[in-house]
Amino acid sequence: MSLIEFFRGKAAKEDRFTALVRPHLRLMHRMAYRWTQERADAEDLVQDVLTRLFPRVDELAAVEKLGPWLIKVLYRRYVDLYRRRANSPIDETAPCVSDDQFFQERLEDGHNHYQQLELQRLLNRALFTLDESWRDVVLLHDVEGYTALEVAEILDINVGTVKSRLHRARKKLRSVLEPGTVEVFAAC
């Protein structure tokens, strides 16, 4: 082993990794929550991704826009885990959005706008009635504010597909906000 190899110690690698990913951890958690709808699952997913990324610290350092890149890795891992669950003998095909407690806490807070939160709860549940491919686009573009180009890169699809899925998804979601559709989404 050369002296140069001696010099690049483990501590330096850990510090470099931490410096690179730490600014993006909350964003990763929020995006993981958007997909999993569970705080604990979101944390586990982020941790899993970080564990896998640590050996690739040099690759991370070379990434120009690390935020979207990390979200892409997170998304792929989410899909892998989801598919693995879907292939398990346990039937988890029925989507169940467990946002009740989260929204309830916020609704009970007098400082929040009740009507807006109710509509957002409806929309959140409606999102999980959409086709996954549509939902992914809405979550990234409309909820998190990524550009169509970034969404295309994260999901590995072309921009035209992003726009068409977005258009269809929005059309369906708008129907949720119309009077008379509230009851449909009121229960999980």
């Binding site: 002296l3 001696f6 010099f7 690049r8 110690g9 483990k10 501590a11 330096a12 510090d15 470099r16 410096a19």
Partner: peptide, 9 residues
């Protein structure tokens, strides 16, 4: 690197 670099002799 910025931060800690370890030299072991």
């Amino acid at each position: 690197s910025a931060g800690a670099n370890r030299l072991t002799l």
